[in-house]
Amino acid sequence: SPEEIKAKALDLLNKKLHRANKFGQDQADIDSLQRQINRVEKFGVDLNSKLAEELGLV
């Protein structure tokens, strides 16, 4: 269901964000992850996106 997909995506992105902060990645990478999280919260996951591929939806 779209809600489950959204939850999985947010979980994955939050893990990536945590790792980025923990290991001191570029601020641009961290900002990009934050924008992705905001986009998923607002609009859900686009099944044509790279994120959908990472989640194994495509």
Rank of each mutant, 00 (worst) to 15 (best):
S1E: 08
S1G: 12
S1W: 11
S1V: 08
S1C: 13
P2D: 13
P2I: 10
P2N: 12
P2A: 13
P2E: 11
P2L: 12
E3I: 07
E3G: 07
E3Y: 05
E4D: 13
I5H: 08
K6G: 03
K6I: 09
K6D: 03
K6A: 06
A7Q: 13
A7W: 06
K8P: 01
K8F: 05
K8C: 13
K8S: 06
A9C: 05
A9L: 07
L10P: 01
L10R: 03
L10Y: 00
L10F: 00
D11P: 00
D11M: 05
D11W: 04
D11T: 03
D11G: 04
L12H: 11
L12G: 02
L13Q: 00
L13S: 00
L13H: 00
L13K: 00
L13F: 00
N14A: 09
N14I: 13
N14K: 14
N14G: 07
K15G: 08
K15R: 10
K15H: 08
K15S: 10
K15Q: 12
K16T: 03
K16W: 06
L17F: 03
L17Y: 03
L17C: 03
L17Q: 02
L17I: 06
H18K: 13
H18R: 12
H18N: 12
H18I: 14
R19D: 15
R19V: 13
R19Q: 14
R19M: 14
R19W: 15
R19C: 15
A20Y: 10
A20V: 05
A20L: 10
N21C: 15
N21V: 15
N21L: 15
N21R: 15
K22I: 13
K22H: 13
K22G: 07
F23H: 12
F23Y: 13
F23T: 14
F23N: 14
G24L: 06
G24T: 06
G24C: 10
Q25N: 12
Q25T: 12
Q25Y: 15
Q25S: 14
Q25L: 13
Q25E: 11
Q25K: 12
D26P: 14
D26R: 07
D26C: 13
Q27W: 09
Q27L: 10
Q27I: 09
Q27N: 08
Q27R: 07
Q27F: 09
Q27Y: 09
A28S: 12
A28N: 10
A28P: 05
A28R: 10
A28G: 11
D29L: 15
D29N: 10
D29C: 15
D29R: 14
I30C: 03
I30K: 05
I30F: 04
D31C: 07
D31I: 12
D31G: 05
D31E: 13
D31N: 09
D31R: 08
D31Q: 09
S32C: 15
S32K: 13
S32L: 14
L33N: 00
L33R: 00
L33A: 00
L33K: 01
L33F: 03
L33I: 15
Q34H: 11
Q34E: 11
Q34V: 15
Q34W: 05
Q34Y: 06
R35L: 11
R35E: 15
R35M: 11
Q36S: 07
Q36N: 05
Q36D: 09
Q36V: 10
I37F: 00
I37Y: 02
I37M: 04
I37W: 00
I37P: 00
I37L: 06
I37D: 01
N38D: 15
N38G: 10
N38H: 09
N38K: 14
N38V: 14
R39C: 15
R39F: 15
V40A: 02
V40S: 01
V40F: 01
E41M: 08
E41R: 09
E41F: 03
K42A: 12
K42V: 09
K42D: 06
K42I: 12
F43D: 09
F43C: 14
F43W: 10
F43H: 12
G44Q: 01
G44F: 00
G44S: 01
V45E: 02
V45N: 01
V45K: 00
V45T: 02
D46L: 05
D46S: 08
D46W: 02
L47N: 05
L47A: 07
N48Q: 09
N48A: 10
S49M: 03
K50I: 09
K50A: 14
K50Y: 09
K50S: 12
K50W: 12
K50T: 12
L51V: 05
L51M: 06
L51H: 02
L51P: 01
A52H: 03
E53R: 11
E54K: 04
E54D: 07
E54R: 05
E54H: 05
E54S: 06
E54T: 06
E54P: 00
E54Y: 07
L55M: 09
L55V: 05
L55E: 02
G56R: 06
G56Y: 04
G56S: 05
G56T: 04
G56L: 06
L57P: 02
L57Y: 08
L57Q: 03
V58W: 04
V58P: 08
